[in-house]
């Protein structure tokens, strides 16, 4: 079996399995802790609070925005860029159609791809530089956090290097890194892409009951 065959075949299925089973396992274990109920008389509906919190936290809290301009810029550029690339880059759309048998949808034009990746790169670099240069994040970050950022960076970089789509090894390298990321994902802080829902819900419910606008 050649490297290409391995990356395209067994490793891909392994990565898929680890990714989905890992995520499911992690979420199940979190939820299995159960909820300590709250017997106090609610002022308002906790449910409304949790729905609100799910969305309100996408915007900075009042008065905090001006202190976290860098986080906001970096965070939004990176995440929006990442999702746009993930969903609408032409090679990705083709991949989903071919390998996952999804119906193909309209990909973004090449110029948009380039623009979006530029923005995503700036965003990720700002976030990671902040992580290493800001005394606060330097104190609280773990090796795993750095690995998450670096791995994501490498995946994006290898994807862009393969942009000419003329060289098989570059595609395989990109795909390999994606698989590494998928295997790493459920074990790492990248899981925040799922856990943020639970966390915001819990907060929103708690303060929603108290009638505090979350």
């Amino acid at each position: 079996m050649t490297v290409t065959e391995f990356v395209d075949g067994p490793l891909w299925y392994f990565a898929l399995a680890v990714f989905f089973l890992g995520i499911a396992w992690r979420l199940v274990v979190i939820l299995a802790n159960g909820w300590r109920g709250d017997l106090s008389r609610p002022r308002r509906s906790g449910l409304t609070g949790s729905v609100r919190a799910l969305f309100s936290r996408f915007a900075p809290a009042p008065g905090i925005g001006r202190r976290i301009g860098l986080h906001l810029t970096g965070g939004y550029l990176f995440h929006l860029g990442l999702f746009a690339l993930l969903l609408f880059a032409a090679p990705h759309v083709a991949f989903y159609a071919e390998r996952l048998s999804l119906p193909a949808w309209q990909p973004m034009p090449h110029w948009a791809f380039v623009l979006v990746s530029e923005l995503a790169f700036i965003g990720l670099m700002l976030l990671w530089l902040n992580r290493v240069l800001n005394p606060v994040t330097r104190l609280i970050s773990s090796t795993g956090d750095h690995l998450s950022s670096i791995l994501t960076f490498l995946v994006m970089l290898s994807g862009c290097l393969a942009l000419e789509q003329a060289h098989e090894p570059l595609r395989v390298l990109h795909f390999f890194l994606v698989e590494v990321l998928m295997i790493y994902f459920p074990f790492s802080s990248l899981m925040h892409a799922f856990t943020f829902v639970l966390s915001r819900e819990a907060l929103g419910y708690r303060y929603g009951r108290r009638g505090v606008p979350v």
Partner: peptide, 21 residues
């Protein structure tokens, strides 16, 4: 070399605008 050169070309083009910013 063809692979490295292609990758370098794409990388160079991509990071150029970031340099300006």
């Amino acid at each position: 070399f063809a692979v490295i050169a292609s990758a370098s070309k794409e990388g160079h083009n991509l990071f150029g605008p970031l340099f300006i910013v």
